[in-house]
C-alpha cells in the first residue's frame, strides 16, 4: 500500500513546528500504524534525514505510551484502539494521513510527536492511591466485595493514562482520566476512608496542572481506547460536591 503522510515536525519545545510531507511506500497490508512509521523512518535515515520522533513502548495497547492524533482523532478513528494496535488494513491505498501530537496546554511538545504527560503523574500523586503500607494488609478474603462492585472498579481501573481524553476535549479537560481513578478507588471498601480527600486533592492537582473544565461533550469517551465510561465523571462530580460540603461543615 502507498500513503502520503502529513507529519508535525518540531525540533524541541521552544521552536516552532510545521507540517512536513512524506511518502509511505510499499507498506504491507498487515503492518501496524507504528510499523508503517518505522518503515518511513528507515527511509528517512537512509536518505540522511532526521527520523520522526514518536512515543511508543509495549505495542500491545496497554502501557499507554503511544499517542498521535491521526486525521484529527487521538489514536485514529478505530473505536477502542490505541495507535499501536491500529493496523493499515483500515486505511485505503493512496490515502493522505495527517499525524499530529496530542495537543493540550498541559501536554507541552518535547519533540515532533512526543509530548510531556507528567501532569498525569502529579494528579495521581495528589491522591490516586490507597494509603496502605506494605505488610499492613488483612487477609485478601477478609472483606467480601460484590462481583458487580469489583467489575465496576475494574472497568474504571483499565484506564491506561494515555491522555487521548485530554487531546480530544475542546477544553483540554482531564476529567475522564481523573474520574476513572477516583471512581475505581472511591467505590471499593479499601479506598473509602480517603474518598473525600482523594476527590478534593486530585481535582485541585488537575486544575493546577492547567487542564480545562468538563462541559459534557463526551469526546473523551468517544476516543478512549479502553472505552472508559463518562459516567465516571458524574460520579466524581458527586463525590467532589459531597466532599466539599462535608469540608465546609467540618
Amino acid at each position: 500500500m502507498n500513503f502520503t503522510l502529513k507529519v508535525w515536525r518540531q525540533n524541541d519545545g521552544d521552536s516552532k513546528g510545521h507540517i512536513e510531507e512524506y511518502p509511505a511506500e510499499n507498506i504491507p497490508i498487515e503492518a501496524s500504524f507504528l510499523e508503517m512509521l518505522d518503515i518511513v523512518n528507515e527511509k528517512i535515515i537512509g536518505d540522511g534525514g532526521s527520523p520522526i520522533h514518536f512515543d511508543h513502548d509495549c505495542r500491545e495497547g496497554i502501557c499507554g505510551m503511544c499517542s498521535l492524533t491521526i486525521n484529527g482523532v487521538p489514536h485514529g478513528r478505530e473505536n477502542g484502539t490505541t495507535t499501536c494496535q491500529l493496523h493499515m488494513r483500515h486505511f485505503d491505498d493512496g490515502d493522505t494521513i495527517w499525524i499530529e501530537p496530542f495537543r493540550a496546554g498541559a501536554f507541552p511538545v518535547i519533540r515532533d510527536l512526543v509530548v510531556d504527560r507528567s501532569a498525569f503523574d502529579r494528579i495521581i500523586a495528589a491522591g490516586g492511591y490507597v494509603s496502605v503500607r506494605t505488610g499492613a494488609a488483612p487477609d485478601a478474603n477478609a472483606i467480601p466485595i460484590t462481583k458487580e462492585d469489583a467489575d465496576h472498579a475494574f472497568d474504571s481501573a483499565t484506564c491506561i493514562g494515555c491522555g487521548a481524553c485530554v487531546a480530544a476535549c475542546k477544553n483540554s479537560s482531564a476529567m475522564l482520566f481523573v474520574s476513572a481513578k477516583a471512581s475505581h478507588l472511591n467505590h471499593l471498601p479499601q479506598g473509602a476512608p480517603e474518598k473525600d480527600r482523594r476527590a478534593l486533592n486530585m481535582v485541585q492537582a488537575m486544575d493546577e496542572a492547567g487542564f480545562g473544565n468538563c462541559s459534557n461533550h463526551y469526546e473523551c469517551e468517544a476516543v478512549c481506547p479502553k472505552s472508559i465510561s463518562a459516567d465516571n465523571v458524574a460520579k466524581l462530580n458527586r463525590d467532589y460536591a459531597a466532599a466539599a460540603v462535608r469540608k465546609a461543615l467540618a
Binding site: G135, A136, A140, I143, K147, D151
Partner: peptide, 22 residues
C-alpha cells in the same frame, strides 16, 4: 500469600465470585 493481601488492600480489582470472594 502476603502479596495477594497487599494488592487487594491497595484496591487491585481482582476477579471475584458472586459471593464476593476472590
Amino acid at each position: 500469600v502476603g502479596i495477594i493481601d497487599q494488592c487487594v488492600s491497595q484496591g487491585v480489582p481482582f476477579a471475584r465470585e458472586y459471593g464476593g470472594l476472590l
